[in-house]
Design a protein around this nucleic acid. Structure first.
Lengths: 168, 168
DNA sequence: CCGAAATGGGACCGATTTGGTACGGTTTGA
DNA sequence: TCAAACCGTACCAAATCGGTCCCATTTCGG
């Protein structure tokens, strides 16, 4: 239902805690306690974020997790992709057009692709840092959101590509 | 995965066919044949769209479905809501804040709400009519998209409300 | 050198959602 | 009266989601 799953939501919450003290090193259990979330879930999420390149992990005793980059440089779009894979509203977009089993409506797919593009760029313009502070009227990152959406819609013909996350 | 479900996709395809001949009356089986979709599925979708007020139905022989309003006045947001219920990225938004079982991160919920708001308004500005024609650079509906997104982000403090569809 | 504290990588499971089918009832036009 | 349509709803298999558990591996510290 145009909905991100719960783990992604938790992920932003966890990243929010870490963003407040960027130089700290956090253990999974510590973060779980801080957010009141079940330990195993937090652990699972953290592993995923490491695989996505958003966190760095340090093994062994006194190990833990820390942000891989500045919180201002981690976008919500990246968090979603790390947790859920490519951002693709429809099967058509995800499959690059070949997934339309019924080949039903490829006229529309270009426009779905544009909408997808717009949403992606909007999410790309909101960072973890933005999320942890109350947004004021003219927060630069968020004002740019609108512009990028407009730009993406004015661009050349739709390339029906999903925005894939490089998990490698 | 920030993904609309397949039936919603089909719904836009079906509405697209109907929008091309606004005065026609379409049977479920006819539409299914035209789009190459399984009959029962199309039928199910059409019923849902009637309940959502987007289509009018006419029973009996020579009956069928027709658009309840002009195709330019039916937004993608409405289609999604008719098919999938309220547009709410997170549980928090949907439940009005009380659904946070772990009460984890209500600092962030306001900002999620703003993002949700932006996406909703963007989808509200794209009509079925827009979807059936290749979008040019400065299609008015799509240019407005960006502006509305910006407006929603500049607004007053976030009211964490889902955009509910009145199914009654 | 050993043990505790951490992460890494899975497997696993119940509950929900999704995608699709089926069937009996009701309305309407010829 | 009969067939063409819609209406409602129940049903089902498959996929996804939310969450737990277990064990291997790494590292620090005494």
């Amino acid at each position: 239902m145009i909905r991100i799953n719960r783990e992604t939501d938790y992920a932003t919450a966890i990243l929010g805690v870490m963003a407040a003290e960027p130089d700290e090193r956090f253990s999974a259990s510590g973060l779980a306690a801080r957010r009141g979330l079940p330990g195993p879930v937090v652990s699972k999420i953290l592993k995923q974020l490491v695989r996505g390149g958003l966190l760095r992990s340090h093994r062994g005793a006194k190990g833990g997790y820390s942000l891989a980059r500045d919180a201002g440089a981690i976008s919500i779009a990246e968090v979603i992709m790390a947790m859920e894979g490519p951002i693709a509203l429809t099967d058509c977009i995800e499959g690059g057009g070949e997934a339309c089993q019924f080949h039903a409506h490829c006229v529309l797919s270009t426009n779905w692709s544009r909408i997808n593009d717009a949403i992606y760029r909007a999410l790309q313009d909101v960072s973890i840092k933005d999320m942890i502070e109350p947004l004021t009227d003219d927060h630069p990152g968020l004002r740019n959101l609108g512009r990028h959406v407009r730009d993406s819609l004015g661009g050349s013909a739709g390339q029906a590509k999903a925005f894939r996350f490089d998990h490698g």
